[in-house]
Simulated scan of single mutants.
Amino acid sequence: MNEALANLIAAAVAFVGTHFALSHPLRGTVVRTVGDKGFQAVYSLVALGTFAWMAMAFRAVPPDTAPLWDGTGHAIWGLATALMLLSSVLLTGSFFGNPALPDPRAAALAEKAPHGVFHVTRHPMMWAFALWSVAHVLVSPTPRVIVLALAMAVLALVGSHMQDRKKEAAMGAAWQGWEARTSFWPRLGGLAKAGALPWIGGIVLWLLGSWAHVWLAYVPAGLWRWIG
């Protein structure tokens, strides 16, 4: 393993590890020491610092180093494009009535029947990040992309599992009822019940994001790969 890849792995571990540590075992201690606003400041600074480290380490690893398979074919790009569309729909829908987000109405939202993308999963934002990770590994299975994508997927899926435990303790019966009415694992049949708004917003986000991809990553993505 070369030094650049080792640095990326260290940065990814730091990024994910500090998120988990500050969100769970260390949160109470830090809040008691510096208060709620101080905790938010510490959390934000650590998150930004470790993310910046990971981004710089990612750029330092050669982009074409030893891909595990050929990710340039139309079929694999078609699958990745479909996953990114689904990710965009879930991400957009996650902002509408999500009891997992910081909101004084969270308990009341959790007591409602599932709506929108919550027919698919109670963690649509986290699954959006996980699907993003899978899509990028499919088309670019290089060591640096695998490390970055794995970090994001672990943060999203392990983090959402830990969030369930934290919400159970904080919200009690309200969150337990929400868990009983929703699924951790995605149910794709729920997409038919998601409603128009997540789909419209998701398609717009998907089109804009894939259009911008060529300027941000120098690789045409989504429909632009075929019509650009």
Rank of each mutant, 00 (worst) to 15 (best):
A75F: 13
P67E: 05
F96R: 12
P102M: 01
S87Q: 15
P114I: 01
R59N: 06
F95D: 07
P124C: 04
R59T: 09
L68Q: 07
R27L: 02
A75N: 03
H119G: 04
T18A: 04
S23E: 13
F58P: 02
S94P: 08
A52F: 10
W69S: 00
G38I: 00
A55V: 15
R105A: 14
A80N: 10
D70F: 14
Y43H: 13
P124G: 02
F96L: 13
L79C: 12
A107R: 07
G35I: 04
F39W: 10
T18V: 04
I76S: 04
A60H: 11
D70H: 13
R59H: 12
V46H: 01
D64Q: 10
R105S: 09
A66Q: 12
A41D: 08
W77F: 11
R122L: 02
H119E: 12
F129L: 14
L45Q: 03
G78P: 07
D64V: 05
W77L: 06
L109Y: 05
A66S: 13
A100M: 15
F129A: 11
A21M: 00
S87P: 09
L109M: 04
S44Q: 14
A128S: 12
D64T: 11
T92M: 14
M125D: 09
H123N: 07
H24F: 09
V42S: 03
D64A: 06
F129P: 15
R32S: 15
L85Q: 07
T72S: 10
L90G: 05
S23W: 12
P67D: 07
G73T: 15
A107P: 03
M126P: 12
W69P: 00
L22W: 00
T33Y: 06
L22S: 04
D103S: 09
L101H: 04
D103E: 06
V42T: 02
W127G: 08
H74Q: 13
G97V: 06
S94C: 10
G71K: 01
H123L: 05
V34I: 09
P25D: 01
A66I: 12
P62D: 01
A128G: 06
W69E: 01
T18K: 05
A21G: 00
F39N: 04
A80Q: 06
A57F: 07
A55T: 10
A128M: 06
F96E: 09
F95H: 08
S23K: 11
A128H: 10
D36P: 13
V34Y: 06
V46R: 04
P99H: 03
T81Y: 14
P63V: 12
G78M: 02
V30H: 02
M126A: 15
V120K: 04
W53C: 06
A108L: 05
L90Q: 01
G49M: 00
G116R: 13
L91D: 07
P99C: 09
P104G: 04
L48Q: 12
T65Q: 13
R105W: 10
D36F: 05
W77Q: 14
P104Y: 09
S44V: 14
A21Q: 01
G49S: 10
S44P: 02
